[in-house]
Amino acid sequence: MTADKALIAKQFIEMIPHAKALSMQITNIGDGLAEITMPYDEALIGDPKTGVIHGGAVSTLMDTCSGAAVMSHPDSPAGTATINLRIDYMRAAKPGDAITAQAECYHITRNVAFIRAKAFDADFDNPVATAAGAFTVEGK
């Protein structure tokens, strides 16, 4: 049952045009947890002097990963949409490194799913950014 849900969530995420455009890959999903990786791409640079990726691209990755975590939660019937997301930027991501987001849907009600997420470059001890947010619970 849960494995099916994870598969459906994975297929749905991989169908998203903008996730495809950024070459996002789901590396882990299930039971309200998700991990998605996005390779470094020069088109995503926000600071041309340093080659550091734009915060907006990191936000997009964390938003997608958070949605995937909600969809994979055992109590989530199907789809979801972001209500609110707060992102804190700890440091610049290292140019050339892929960005990995890990999200957790830590609480879910009939109407609202609550998430926490972190984003890393190759250094998994120091997050690049963290996020917290609320998502809708659709299809009940």
Binding site: M15, I16, P17, H18, A19, A21, H54, G55, G56, A57, S59, T60, L61, M62, D63, T64, G67, G79, A81, T82, L85, I87
Partner: peptide
């Protein structure tokens, strides 16, 4: 643009794109 879609069923813009647009 088609590549900005986040939900192909509705269809709707990707929430991340909206966030990036606001941040920019």
């Amino acid at each position: 643009e088609e590549k900005l879609i986040g939900n192909p069923l509705l269809p709707a813009l990707h929430g991340g794109v909206t966030a990036a647009f606001l941040e920019t």
